[in-house]
Structures are given as C-alpha cells and as structure tokens.
Amino acid sequence: MTSMKLTFAAIALIGLSACDSNSSLGGLGKDRGAPSSGGISQSNLDPASIAYFNETIGDTVLFLVDQSTLTSEATALLDRQAAWLLDNPRNSVTIEGHADEQGTREYNLALGARRAASVQNYLVSRGLTDARISTVTFGKERPLAVCSDEACWSKNRRSVTLVTGGLGS
C-alpha cells in the first residue's frame, strides 16, 4: 500500500446551472411609489412651502439605465425647480443621487454622484449659485420601489431634490 495519492481529473468550468438557485421573483413586488401627499389638495399649499415644492413642482428626476444625462422631461422639471428656488432664495437644496440594483455597490455610488452632479450643474446653469446646492450619493442603498424589474428600477434611477431652510422648514 504505497500509493497514497488521490487522483484527480482536471475539471472544466463547473456547470453554472448548479448555482442558479434564485429564480427571479420580478413582478411580485408591490410598488410603493412615491409618498402620497396625504390628501392635501395643492390649492391649500403655500407656494413658498417645501411641501409645495415636493408635491406640486416635483422633487424627483428619473434617469435611463447607467446614464446621468438629463432627459427633456428632466430638464423641464428642473426648470420649474430652478424658478422656484430663485423665488425662494432663503432655501438651500441637497441633491440625492440614486441608482437601481442592477450594478455593483461602489460603481453605483459613483453613478449616483454623477446623477446628482448632473442635476446640480443644470440648476447652476439656470442661475442658482453653487453654494446653495450640495450633493450626496446613495448608490443602490435606498431604493424607492422594491420589486426587481424595470417597473421599479425605472423609479429608482433618480435624483431627489431635498429643500432645506426658508419657509416651512
């Protein structure tokens, strides 16, 4: 009994199907959507209030997959945001940049930062001063919608303009 060696054969790449234990549950997720305005009709909102900004003007800009360029819908919304901010000079904003879950964590942080900067640059181009705008990225850490298909992903690829200071703060 001298041969103590186990013998092995070279193994080609092991079938990946063995690892495919997670079938997609896409579509089952309930879309939470944006927070509702709680039944307050917009006519009751002070146009200088943050609630007015969030609900009537809109705080969220959406992006295409892996993109930070602004769509025409996005620039139209940002034009209204910029106008409001020029009318309400005591307010500052923080732009949050977000990504959907279809990317790696650190890349998505960088992508969220790019989206936030894209919004910031546009607002500056509309006359806002840099000093009033800060940015933060959340990458894929804070999804708004939680299903795993495009219906949710499209809502998560977003920037959110958070107004601080001034009236209603």
Binding site: N22, L25, G29, K30, T104, V146
Partner: peptide
Amino acid sequence: ASFLDEGPTWSPNGRVIMFFRETAGA
C-alpha cells in the same frame, strides 16, 4: 451565476472566494 452575486474576497491562501448573493424581488 445568479440574480445578483457581488463583491468577491479571497481566503488567506487564495483557494476560496467569499462573496454575497442577493435574491430578487420585494
């Protein structure tokens, strides 16, 4: 392969890889 496998890290001897796997859906 899966819906989301990410973030490999090596065992001290370079023979094993740890990572995380996230399942899909809400």
